[in-house]
Simulated scan of single mutants.
Amino acid sequence: MRRLVLATALTGVLLGVPGIAGAGGAAPTVRCSITDPRLAEVSGLVAVGEQVLALNDGGDQVAVYGLDDACAVIDVQSAPVDPYDPEDLAVGPDGGVWIADTGDNNVDRATVALHVLRPDGSTALHRLTYPDGAHDAEALLVTPDGTPYVVTKEVLGSSGVYRPAGALADGGTAPMERVATVNVTLTGTPGGPVGRAGQLMITGGAVASDGSAVALRTYTDAYVWPLTASDVPGALAGEPVRVALPESPQGEAVSFTADSRALVVASEGLPSAVTVVPLPAGAPPAATAAPVADPLPGFEELVRSDRSPVAAALIAAAVATLVVWLGSRLRRRP
Protein backbone atom coordinates (compact mmCIF):
# COMPACT_ATOMS: atom_id res chain seq x y z
CA MET A 1 0.00 0.00 0.00
CA ARG A 2 1.20 3.53 -0.66
CA ARG A 3 1.75 5.67 2.39
CA LEU A 4 -0.38 8.80 2.80
CA VAL A 5 0.81 11.89 0.99
CA LEU A 6 2.01 14.07 3.86
CA ALA A 7 4.65 16.25 2.21
CA THR A 8 2.55 19.38 2.65
CA ALA A 9 1.88 18.61 6.28
CA LEU A 10 5.63 18.41 6.87
CA THR A 11 5.73 22.16 6.36
CA GLY A 12 2.82 22.68 8.72
CA VAL A 13 0.67 24.12 5.93
CA LEU A 14 -2.48 22.37 4.68
CA LEU A 15 -3.25 23.09 1.06
CA GLY A 16 -6.82 23.17 -0.14
CA VAL A 17 -8.38 20.17 -1.80
CA PRO A 18 -10.14 21.30 -5.01
CA GLY A 19 -13.69 22.15 -4.10
CA ILE A 20 -12.95 22.03 -0.36
CA ALA A 21 -11.89 25.63 0.32
CA GLY A 22 -14.79 27.60 1.71
CA ALA A 23 -16.21 30.99 0.82
CA GLY A 24 -17.71 33.03 3.65
CA GLY A 25 -21.44 33.56 3.37
CA ALA A 26 -22.05 30.68 0.97
CA ALA A 27 -24.41 27.80 1.69
CA PRO A 28 -23.06 24.38 2.74
CA THR A 29 -21.88 22.33 -0.24
CA VAL A 30 -21.57 18.55 -0.52
CA ARG A 31 -18.15 17.90 -2.00
CA CYS A 32 -18.57 14.13 -2.40
CA SER A 33 -19.98 11.11 -0.62
CA ILE A 34 -18.03 8.32 1.06
CA THR A 35 -19.29 4.90 0.04
CA ASP A 36 -16.34 2.64 0.84
CA PRO A 37 -17.47 -0.07 3.34
CA ARG A 38 -14.21 0.35 5.25
CA LEU A 39 -15.45 3.82 6.28
CA ALA A 40 -18.95 3.00 7.47
CA GLU A 41 -18.33 4.84 10.76
CA VAL A 42 -16.32 7.96 9.92
CA SER A 43 -15.41 9.69 13.17
CA GLY A 44 -12.35 11.76 12.20
CA LEU A 45 -11.50 13.93 9.21
CA VAL A 46 -8.72 16.32 8.20
CA ALA A 47 -7.66 17.90 4.89
CA VAL A 48 -3.98 17.39 4.02
CA GLY A 49 -2.41 18.36 0.72
CA GLU A 50 -4.42 16.88 -2.13
CA GLN A 51 -6.12 14.37 0.14
CA VAL A 52 -8.72 14.24 2.85
CA LEU A 53 -7.73 11.85 5.64
CA ALA A 54 -10.50 9.85 7.27
CA LEU A 55 -10.65 7.66 10.36
CA ASN A 56 -13.15 4.87 10.93
CA ASP A 57 -14.57 4.30 14.41
CA GLY A 58 -13.60 0.69 15.12
CA GLY A 59 -11.59 -2.03 13.43
CA ASP A 60 -8.82 -4.37 14.55
CA GLN A 61 -5.94 -2.07 13.61
CA VAL A 62 -5.09 1.62 13.57
CA ALA A 63 -5.81 2.77 10.01
CA VAL A 64 -6.09 6.14 8.29
CA TYR A 65 -7.57 6.39 4.79
CA GLY A 66 -6.60 8.97 2.18
CA LEU A 67 -9.50 10.12 0.00
CA ASP A 68 -9.38 11.92 -3.32
CA ASP A 69 -11.75 14.71 -4.33
CA ALA A 70 -14.39 12.12 -5.26
CA CYS A 71 -14.15 10.48 -1.81
CA ALA A 72 -12.51 7.35 -3.23
CA VAL A 73 -9.87 5.66 -1.06
CA ILE A 74 -6.47 6.10 -2.71
CA ASP A 75 -4.08 5.55 0.21
CA VAL A 76 -4.07 3.69 3.51
CA GLN A 77 -1.59 4.02 6.35
CA SER A 78 -1.89 1.63 9.24
CA ALA A 79 -0.16 0.30 12.32
CA PRO A 80 -0.37 -3.28 13.65
CA VAL A 81 -2.15 -2.18 16.82
CA ASP A 82 -5.65 -3.26 17.80
CA PRO A 83 -7.23 -0.06 19.18
CA TYR A 84 -9.91 -0.02 21.85
CA ASP A 85 -12.14 2.72 20.38
CA PRO A 86 -10.57 5.25 17.95
CA GLU A 87 -12.58 8.46 17.75
CA ASP A 88 -10.74 11.42 16.20
CA LEU A 89 -7.92 12.41 13.91
CA ALA A 90 -5.42 15.29 13.71
CA VAL A 91 -2.18 16.21 11.96
CA GLY A 92 0.72 17.54 14.00
CA PRO A 93 3.21 20.25 13.00
CA ASP A 94 5.77 17.65 11.86
CA GLY A 95 3.28 15.88 9.60
CA GLY A 96 2.55 13.05 12.02
CA VAL A 97 -1.02 11.77 11.98
CA TRP A 98 -2.51 11.52 15.49
CA ILE A 99 -5.31 9.08 16.28
CA ALA A 100 -7.29 9.52 19.49
CA ASP A 101 -8.08 6.07 20.87
CA THR A 102 -10.16 7.69 23.60
CA GLY A 103 -13.66 6.28 23.26
CA ASP A 104 -15.04 4.82 26.49
CA ASN A 105 -18.79 4.26 26.32
CA ASN A 106 -18.77 2.31 29.59
CA VAL A 107 -16.50 4.88 31.30
CA ASP A 108 -14.24 2.20 32.75
CA ARG A 109 -10.88 2.45 30.93
CA ALA A 110 -7.81 2.75 33.12
CA THR A 111 -5.92 4.50 30.29
CA VAL A 112 -6.63 6.01 26.90
CA ALA A 113 -4.17 6.19 24.01
CA LEU A 114 -2.83 8.46 21.31
CA HIS A 115 -1.32 6.71 18.29
CA VAL A 116 1.00 8.63 15.97
CA LEU A 117 1.74 7.59 12.39
CA ARG A 118 4.92 9.44 11.44
CA PRO A 119 5.81 10.59 7.89
CA ASP A 120 8.80 8.19 7.82
CA GLY A 121 6.51 5.19 8.36
CA SER A 122 7.33 4.68 12.04
CA THR A 123 4.71 4.80 14.77
CA ALA A 124 4.39 5.89 18.38
CA LEU A 125 1.99 5.00 21.17
CA HIS A 126 1.28 7.28 24.13
CA ARG A 127 -0.97 6.09 26.95
CA LEU A 128 -2.67 8.69 29.13
CA THR A 129 -4.56 8.75 32.41
CA TYR A 130 -7.16 11.25 33.61
CA PRO A 131 -6.69 12.94 37.00
CA ASP A 132 -10.37 12.48 37.94
CA GLY A 133 -11.42 9.05 36.72
CA ALA A 134 -12.45 7.64 33.36
CA HIS A 135 -14.24 9.68 30.67
CA ASP A 136 -15.66 9.04 27.23
CA ALA A 137 -13.95 11.38 24.74
CA GLU A 138 -14.34 11.82 20.98
CA ALA A 139 -12.49 15.08 20.23
CA LEU A 140 -8.77 15.61 19.70
CA LEU A 141 -6.95 18.93 19.17
CA VAL A 142 -3.27 19.06 18.20
CA THR A 143 -1.90 22.61 18.26
CA PRO A 144 0.88 24.14 16.12
CA ASP A 145 3.33 23.61 19.00
CA GLY A 146 2.51 19.87 18.99
CA THR A 147 0.47 19.72 22.20
CA PRO A 148 -2.46 17.27 22.13
CA TYR A 149 -5.72 18.09 23.91
CA VAL A 150 -8.51 15.59 24.60
CA VAL A 151 -12.07 16.90 25.01
CA THR A 152 -14.64 14.69 26.72
CA LYS A 153 -18.16 13.92 25.55
CA GLU A 154 -20.71 14.74 28.25
CA VAL A 155 -24.45 14.15 28.09
CA LEU A 156 -25.22 17.38 29.99
CA GLY A 157 -23.05 19.65 27.86
CA SER A 158 -20.14 20.45 30.22
CA SER A 159 -17.01 18.87 28.73
CA GLY A 160 -13.54 18.70 30.23
CA VAL A 161 -10.41 19.63 28.27
CA TYR A 162 -7.26 17.69 29.16
CA ARG A 163 -3.63 17.72 28.07
CA PRO A 164 -0.54 15.75 29.12
CA ALA A 165 0.91 17.08 32.36
CA GLY A 166 4.44 16.38 31.13
CA ALA A 167 6.45 15.12 28.20
CA LEU A 168 5.14 12.14 26.25
CA ALA A 169 7.30 9.03 25.85
CA ASP A 170 6.75 6.37 23.22
CA GLY A 171 5.29 3.32 24.92
CA GLY A 172 4.94 5.09 28.26
CA THR A 173 1.95 6.25 30.31
CA ALA A 174 1.61 9.92 31.19
CA PRO A 175 -0.88 11.69 33.48
CA MET A 176 -3.13 14.38 32.08
CA GLU A 177 -4.32 17.58 33.70
CA ARG A 178 -7.65 19.31 33.26
CA VAL A 179 -7.04 22.76 31.83
CA ALA A 180 -10.45 24.00 30.67
CA THR A 181 -14.19 23.35 30.58
CA VAL A 182 -16.42 23.81 27.54
CA ASN A 183 -20.11 24.42 28.16
CA VAL A 184 -22.64 24.12 25.36
CA THR A 185 -26.40 24.41 25.52
CA LEU A 186 -29.44 23.36 23.56
CA THR A 187 -29.59 25.08 20.18
CA GLY A 188 -32.62 23.64 18.44
CA THR A 189 -30.51 22.38 15.52
CA PRO A 190 -31.78 18.98 14.33
CA GLY A 191 -29.58 15.92 13.79
CA GLY A 192 -27.81 13.06 15.46
CA PRO A 193 -28.90 9.70 16.82
CA VAL A 194 -30.01 10.81 20.30
CA GLY A 195 -32.46 13.66 19.74
CA ARG A 196 -31.97 16.93 21.61
CA ALA A 197 -29.23 15.46 23.79
CA GLY A 198 -27.04 15.39 20.68
CA GLN A 199 -26.89 19.20 20.81
CA LEU A 200 -24.89 18.89 24.04
CA MET A 201 -22.36 16.15 23.23
CA ILE A 202 -18.96 17.09 21.77
CA THR A 203 -18.06 14.57 19.09
CA GLY A 204 -15.03 16.00 17.28
CA GLY A 205 -12.41 18.73 17.15
CA ALA A 206 -10.04 20.52 14.79
CA VAL A 207 -7.32 23.17 14.71
CA ALA A 208 -6.94 25.49 11.69
CA SER A 209 -3.83 24.81 9.61
CA ASP A 210 -2.52 28.34 10.21
CA GLY A 211 -3.12 28.08 13.95
CA SER A 212 -5.69 30.86 13.91
CA ALA A 213 -8.71 28.97 15.21
CA VAL A 214 -9.94 25.91 17.03
CA ALA A 215 -13.27 24.15 16.51
CA LEU A 216 -15.34 21.65 18.46
CA ARG A 217 -18.52 20.07 17.16
CA THR A 218 -21.55 18.29 18.57
CA TYR A 219 -23.88 16.06 16.58
CA THR A 220 -25.64 19.23 15.38
CA ASP A 221 -23.46 22.35 15.72
CA ALA A 222 -19.87 23.55 15.51
CA TYR A 223 -18.22 26.10 17.81
CA VAL A 224 -15.21 28.10 16.63
CA TRP A 225 -12.81 30.15 18.76
CA PRO A 226 -9.86 32.33 17.67
CA LEU A 227 -6.56 30.75 18.73
CA THR A 228 -3.35 32.57 19.56
CA ALA A 229 0.07 30.97 20.16
CA SER A 230 -1.40 27.46 20.63
CA ASP A 231 -3.16 28.62 23.81
CA VAL A 232 -6.20 26.33 23.77
CA PRO A 233 -7.28 27.04 27.39
CA GLY A 234 -7.13 30.77 26.71
CA ALA A 235 -9.10 30.39 23.49
CA LEU A 236 -11.84 28.28 25.05
CA ALA A 237 -12.29 30.85 27.82
CA GLY A 238 -13.72 33.24 25.22
CA GLU A 239 -17.02 33.29 23.38
CA PRO A 240 -17.21 31.06 20.30
CA VAL A 241 -18.97 31.48 17.00
CA ARG A 242 -21.69 28.85 16.71
CA VAL A 243 -22.41 27.35 13.30
CA ALA A 244 -25.45 25.14 12.76
CA LEU A 245 -24.40 22.07 10.77
CA PRO A 246 -26.44 20.27 8.12
CA GLU A 247 -28.60 17.54 9.62
CA SER A 248 -26.90 14.15 9.59
CA PRO A 249 -27.52 10.76 11.23
CA GLN A 250 -24.40 10.76 13.45
CA GLY A 251 -22.06 13.66 12.75
CA GLU A 252 -18.68 13.27 14.46
CA ALA A 253 -15.97 14.34 12.01
CA VAL A 254 -14.83 17.95 11.56
CA SER A 255 -11.87 19.71 9.92
CA PHE A 256 -10.95 23.21 8.78
CA THR A 257 -10.41 24.08 5.14
CA ALA A 258 -7.09 25.55 3.98
CA ASP A 259 -8.21 29.19 4.19
CA SER A 260 -9.75 28.68 7.66
CA ARG A 261 -13.03 30.24 6.50
CA ALA A 262 -14.96 26.98 6.34
CA LEU A 263 -15.36 23.65 8.04
CA VAL A 264 -15.50 20.19 6.49
CA VAL A 265 -17.83 17.72 8.22
CA ALA A 266 -18.95 14.13 7.77
CA SER A 267 -21.14 11.58 9.52
CA GLU A 268 -21.13 7.91 10.37
CA GLY A 269 -23.19 5.74 8.05
CA LEU A 270 -23.04 5.12 4.30
CA PRO A 271 -23.18 7.04 2.11
CA SER A 272 -21.56 9.79 4.17
CA ALA A 273 -21.59 13.26 2.65
CA VAL A 274 -18.35 15.24 3.00
CA THR A 275 -19.81 18.73 3.36
CA VAL A 276 -18.13 22.14 3.32
CA VAL A 277 -19.77 24.53 5.79
CA PRO A 278 -18.53 28.14 5.40
CA LEU A 279 -17.96 30.18 8.54
CA PRO A 280 -19.71 33.54 8.91
CA ALA A 281 -17.88 36.47 7.34
CA GLY A 282 -15.30 37.85 9.72
CA ALA A 283 -15.23 34.78 11.96
CA PRO A 284 -13.39 34.20 14.15
CA PRO A 285 -13.98 36.25 16.16
CA ALA A 286 -17.58 37.27 15.59
CA ALA A 287 -20.77 37.58 17.53
CA THR A 288 -22.06 34.23 18.66
CA ALA A 289 -25.47 33.27 17.44
CA ALA A 290 -27.78 33.19 20.45
CA PRO A 291 -28.85 29.67 21.43
CA VAL A 292 -32.50 28.80 21.54
CA ALA A 293 -33.87 29.52 25.01
CA ASP A 294 -34.85 26.05 26.15
CA PRO A 295 -34.40 24.19 29.43
CA LEU A 296 -32.31 21.05 29.59
CA PRO A 297 -34.42 18.05 28.59
CA GLY A 298 -35.56 15.74 31.34
CA PHE A 299 -34.92 12.02 31.33
CA GLU A 300 -38.40 11.23 29.98
CA GLU A 301 -37.91 13.64 27.09
CA LEU A 302 -34.51 12.22 26.23
CA VAL A 303 -35.74 8.64 26.05
CA ARG A 304 -39.26 9.28 24.76
CA SER A 305 -40.93 6.42 22.93
CA ASP A 306 -40.62 7.83 19.42
CA ARG A 307 -36.86 7.39 19.52
CA SER A 308 -35.21 4.28 18.14
CA PRO A 309 -34.40 1.60 20.74
CA VAL A 310 -30.68 2.17 20.14
CA ALA A 311 -30.93 5.92 20.74
CA ALA A 312 -33.03 5.45 23.87
CA ALA A 313 -30.59 2.86 25.19
CA LEU A 314 -27.62 5.16 24.59
CA ILE A 315 -29.22 8.01 26.49
CA ALA A 316 -30.44 5.78 29.29
CA ALA A 317 -26.95 4.36 29.69
CA ALA A 318 -25.41 7.84 29.72
CA VAL A 319 -27.84 9.09 32.37
CA ALA A 320 -27.35 5.96 34.44
CA THR A 321 -23.59 6.43 34.26
CA LEU A 322 -23.98 10.03 35.44
CA VAL A 323 -26.14 8.96 38.38
CA VAL A 324 -23.66 6.26 39.41
CA TRP A 325 -20.77 8.74 39.13
CA LEU A 326 -22.56 11.35 41.25
CA GLY A 327 -23.45 8.73 43.80
CA SER A 328 -19.85 7.55 44.08
CA ARG A 329 -18.65 11.15 44.53
CA LEU A 330 -21.19 11.80 47.25
CA ARG A 331 -20.21 8.61 49.08
CA ARG A 332 -16.58 9.72 49.07
CA ARG A 333 -17.36 12.96 50.88
CA PRO A 334 -16.27 13.03 54.55
Rank of each mutant, 00 (worst) to 15 (best):
F256H: 04
P309R: 11
G24D: 10
A317C: 04
G172L: 11
S272D: 09
L125G: 06
E87R: 09
Y223T: 08
S78V: 08
V5Y: 02
T173F: 08
G121H: 11
A317G: 14
V274A: 09
V241S: 07
Q199T: 06
R2P: 15
L14V: 00
A266L: 04
P249D: 09
P18W: 02
A167I: 09
S159H: 15
R217E: 03
T35Y: 09
N105Y: 02
R331E: 13
V13G: 04
D68W: 04
L216M: 09
A290P: 11
G188L: 11
A7Q: 06
T203Q: 04
D231I: 03
A169Y: 10
D136N: 15
L45W: 01
A235R: 01
D36N: 12
Y84F: 14
T220W: 05
S305I: 10
D231W: 01
A206K: 00
P246N: 10
D60Q: 12
G171R: 09
T220N: 07
I99Y: 04
P271G: 11
P297K: 11
G171M: 07
N56R: 14
A222N: 11
E268I: 02
A253V: 05
S43C: 04
E268W: 03
Q199W: 01
G44I: 11
L4A: 11
Y130G: 01
T218N: 02
V97D: 06
P190L: 14
I34L: 13
A318R: 14
N56Q: 12
P233D: 04
L39V: 13
A281N: 07
S122R: 15
V142H: 01
P295C: 07
V182F: 10
